[in-house]
């Protein structure tokens, strides 16, 4: 097609000012022509409204009569909370029936003859535009906003600064010492406690191939003291045991203890705790975004969106034979941050 014809067509053509074809003749519904059908529709609508009212009564009865803890066995659908089910059915049914009744009424009994409204151009008439502009100009002139430069400029300056307090208030929303992100509870000699039982671990408690979640002794006291879970969010670790010859590399010399390795449990991507461990490949998989780390190779990233290796915690045993941290973490745990370095 050529550009010329296209332009001609578009400019020659009216922009839908007049309908090209008239409205088709109106066809009557059965309820318009047959009084019996109309009465039937009337009865249907009224029935729905009456049923709705009855369901409200039923709702109140359920609220009063059905214990909030009682259950119903629905066979294949399992055991459900009876109160919730019946309250939902009665309330939902009552509301729904009002809606269906009203729409049925509109569709069957109210006039269904289409009517036509004209649209008018949206803008104000020219006189109004002129009058508005003039009123504005008068106002500007009377205020002296243009001539009185010093007033104008000082006002603008004051208005620009006026939000400053509102922003300054926000300063105390939180502390700004980001170095806390580099610290965890772990320090040399801390015993490693298994999660849930909170018992200290001995090397012989771990078989080759197992993974346990653990935390430092003293975590619970700190949590009580600070009333937050902040310490736990950083100090949580996992321990895995593999055959020493399977360890290809570590983040430090002899950071393992007889094939037992300790890593942070917090993903270096966006911080999900990780405990999906594949024994055969020694891969650790994050359930949130599938970052995969090879624990036999310094916890390096082998797949997924995480960019950093899982920080390793050096471990050893104390004189009583319990596993302890040989030192704290040597790099920040958890997601990267601007100042991490």
């Amino acid at each position: 097609m050529s550009e010329k014809t296209s332009t001609e067509l578009a400019t020659a053509e009216h922009h839908g000012e007049e309908p090209l074809f008239p409205l088709p003749p109106h066809r009557h519904r059965l309820t318009d022509t047959d009084p019996r059908a109309a009465r039937r529709a009337e009865r249907q609508v009224a029935t729905m409204f009456v049923l709705s009212a009855l369901l409200v009564v039923a709702f109140v009865a359920v609220y009063v009569g059905v214990d909030v803890r009682s259950t119903l066995n629905l066979g294949p659908f399992g055991v459900v909370n009876a109160s919730n089910l019946l309250l939902g059915l009665t309330m939902g049914g009552a509301i729904l029936l009002i809606g269906i009744g009203a729409i049925h009424w509109a569709k069957k009994l109210m006039s269904d003859e289409e009517i036509v409204d004209e649209r008018h151009p949206l803008g104000s008439p020219k006189e109004d535009q002129d009058a508005a502009l003039e009123a504005f100009q008068t106002g500007v002139a009377e205020s002296g906003f243009v001539e009185r430069k010093i007033v104008r400029r000082s006002l603008i300056g004051a208005l620009l600064l006026f939000p400053v307090p509102l922003i300054v208030f926000l300063k105390d929303m939180g502390p700004t010492d980001v170095n806390v992100l580099r610290e965890t509870l772990w320090k040399k000699g801390d015993r490693i406690l298994v999660d849930i039982t909170l018992q200290p671990l001995r090397p012989e408690d771990l078989n080759v191939g197992t993974l346990v979640s653990a935390s430092p002794e003293g975590l619970n006291e700190v949590q009580e003291l600070e009333h937050t879970q902040n310490a736990r969010a950083k100090a949580s670790i996992i321990l895995v045991r593999m055959k020493p010859e399977e360890i290809r590399s570590q983040q430090g010399d002899n950071w393992d203890y007889q094939g037992i390795l300790a890593f942070s449990k917090i993903c270096t991507h966006v911080g999900c705790p990780i405990a999906l461990y594949q024994q055969r490949t020694h891969h650790l998989l994050c359930p949130c975004h599938q970052s995969t780390f090879d624990l036999s190779d310094s916890g390096n990233v082998v797949f997924g969106p995480a960019a950093r290796q899982m920080p390793q915690l050096p471990i050893t045993v104390d004189e009583e034979g319990y596993l302890v941290a040989a030192d704290g973490f040597q790099q920040p745990v958890g997601p990267s941050f601007w100042e991490r370095g």
């Binding site: 939902g88 939902g92 509301i95 729904l96 009744g101 009203a102 509109a106």
Partner: peptide, 22 residues
């Protein structure tokens, strides 16, 4: 017409949502 249809439709949406909740 639209008071009935649109108004009624509010009750339909609310009713269906309440049934879903139950």
């Amino acid at each position: 017409v639209y008071v009935a249809k649109a108004g009624g439709f509010f009750f339909v949406v609310f009713g269906v949502t309440a049934l879903m909740g139950g």
